[in-house]
Every structure is written in structure tokens, then in C-alpha cells.
Amino acid sequence: MTDDELVRRLPRLHVFGRVTPADKLRLADVMQRGGAIVAMTGDAVNDAAALKKADIGVAMGSGSEVTKQAGKLILTDDNFGTLITAIRLGRSVYDRILAYIRYQMSKLFSLVLLFLVASIFDINDGVALSPLMVVFQHFFITLFPVIVIMQDPSPPGLMDKPPRDPTQPIANRKAFVQWFAYGVLQFAVTLAAMLLAPGSMSPTEPNVPMTTAFVVLSLGSILAGLTMRRDPESGLSPPILGALKILSIPLVVTVLSVELGFMQELLQTTSLTGGQWLACLGWSLIIPVVVEGEEAIRRRRRDARAPGVAARIAVAPRRART
């Protein structure tokens, strides 16, 4: 059988008998040239070459030392079901890394744009927030949404997703556009709240507009952490109680930083009225509403384009045709 004929028949073939080490190596090579991600399991010395060639070589814990050295993954319990657990764990960790980068990059873009626009258009002499406000944001506000992202349990349907493209880096063009768009959203909301707040601005004296910008950015960062912890799944889907408990801490810290006297002196903030607090909350809610709406649109497009293949089908290929 030629390689071209083998490529055509591979989608209908699931069991190969009496294969030699050279046959195993050839199968792995042909499938890779066809664009497939190849996983190979083995326990004997004659499996080592194919294990080395495969994208994911899985060696049995009871196998030979040569096989273990050639493989990238060792099943210490010799249980193929452990592979599903490993894939689920890997996907969960990867999603959390993406969520962390997405959250931090969007926050970074929002701050850069805020100070850049304030400097270009001479808004409050180029001082959108005091330096201590920015430092306070990073150490006492942003920290808690990051904890929520890192502790977020795996969302339902994690194993129904199709495999990601291994050649696509984390910082790809699509991801960069998303980070920038979320950053522009947070920047626009914060700047609008600052410009429309009552009172005059001052780069050196506490004032309502700059305090409003600080509060809106803080509340927006808290809510953004809640909604950006999953993508494109909704960040408001359960379990959510644990995340809300953690995010209540920076919420209280934000209120205290505006209303306590010594915090006002430290951060150059001033007390806000009840109406001004409600206005800040209203501005901040724009961020999760837009993010959740954008994620809902992408989920609808994804579901309409191609449903995922469940893990139980992936490990039993014949079921995919029933």
C-alpha cells in the first residue's frame, strides 16, 4: 500500500494487526504529514522509534526503560483512562494561563491608553490618576481577580472542545486584537466617567473626577476578572459563589480607599456621594455587559459552525459514526 492510498484509507481504519516497528514509524509519519496530531502508546523496545516520532509518545509504567526514555508521557498506572485526566488537566491549566494573560494585558492597555490620551489632550495636565493610585490598583485590587482566575474550576464541556492548533502561539493576532479591544473598553469607560463627573480637576489636589476614574477603574477591574476568567464560556456561570467571596475583598478595599481619611491623604481621593457611587457602579457594569455579550456571540457562532467531539467518543472512534 502506497502512502497516498494509506492517507485516503486512514479515516476508515482503526485497528492494525501484525505491524512491525517500521510500520508503526511509517503510520506516525504519514499521519503527521497529513496534518494530524499523533499520539503513540507502547511498552516494548520495538515501540521506541514510533514513540519518539509521535507528537505525544505515551510509555507504559511497566514498560522498558528505552520506551520510557523515548516517550514524553509515562502512564505509571498503565491505565489508558488516565490519559483523559491528563488532557483535562492540561486544558484547564492552559485556559487559566490564557485567562490571566488576557486579563493583565487588557488592564495594561487600558492604563497606557488612559495616560496617553490624558497627555495628548492635556486632560488634568496629563495626570489621569496619581502614581499611588496606579500602584494601589496593582497590589490591592488586581491581585484578587487574578486569584479568582487561578482558582477557577474547569468549566463544563471542557472536554467537548476541539483540540487547539499547537502551532498557534498564545500572543497571536486574534488574541492581541481581543486584548486591545477589552483594554479600549475599560479605557473608554474610565475616561468617560472622569470627564462627565462633577467638579473641577486638579493633578495635585483631591477631586471628584479623578476619584471617579479611580473607582470606575477599580470596579471595572473586579468585574472584568469575573467575566474574563473563562472564554468563550460565560464568567457568570456556576460555580460563582467562591469567586464572589474573593472579589468582595477588593470591593471593600475600594470603598475604604475613598472614604477613609488617611487613605484619602495617601491616594489623593475624596469622598463621593451616594449618587456618585451609583454612577461609578453604572459605568463599571458596562464592562461585564459588553464582555459577556461578545463571548455569547462567539459561543453562538462556534456552536453553529461545528459541535465539539466528546471525550468518550474520542477514545472510541467507531462511536463517532453512529
Rank of each mutant, 00 (worst) to 15 (best):
Thr212Asp: 03
Phe16Met: 12
Ser62Thr: 15
Pro166Tyr: 05
Pro131Lys: 05
Trp283Ala: 10
Ala39Gln: 04
Gln69Met: 12
Phe144Arg: 01
Pro232Gly: 02
Val216His: 06
His138Trp: 10
Pro11Lys: 01
Glu5Leu: 08
Glu294Arg: 12
Ser154Leu: 01
Asp3Thr: 06
Ala54Arg: 02
Val7His: 11
Ala316Thr: 13
Phe16Tyr: 13
Arg8Ser: 11
Asp160Ala: 08
Phe16Gln: 00
Ala311Arg: 01
Gly183Val: 00
Val215Glu: 09
Gly282Lys: 04
Glu295Arg: 15
Ser92Met: 07
Asp43Asn: 05
Gln69Trp: 01
Ile249Gly: 03
Gln69Pro: 10
Leu114Ala: 15
Leu196Ala: 13
Ala54Lys: 03
Pro307Tyr: 02
Leu226Asp: 02
Gln69Asp: 14
Arg12Phe: 13
Leu108His: 04
Asp3Trp: 00
Leu114Met: 13
Ala54Gly: 00
Asp23Thr: 00
Ser110His: 05
Ala304Thr: 00
Ala314Phe: 07
Arg298Met: 15
Val112Thr: 09
Gly34Thr: 03
Gly282Ile: 01
Val215Trp: 04
Lys245Cys: 04
Glu205Ser: 11
Pro288Leu: 08
Asp152Trp: 06
Leu6Ser: 09
Ser92Gly: 11
Ser218Val: 03
Val290Met: 13
Leu266Trp: 11
Ala192Ile: 14
Leu116Asp: 11
Arg229Gly: 07
Val58Gly: 05
Ile170Asn: 07
Trp277Cys: 06
Gln151Ser: 12
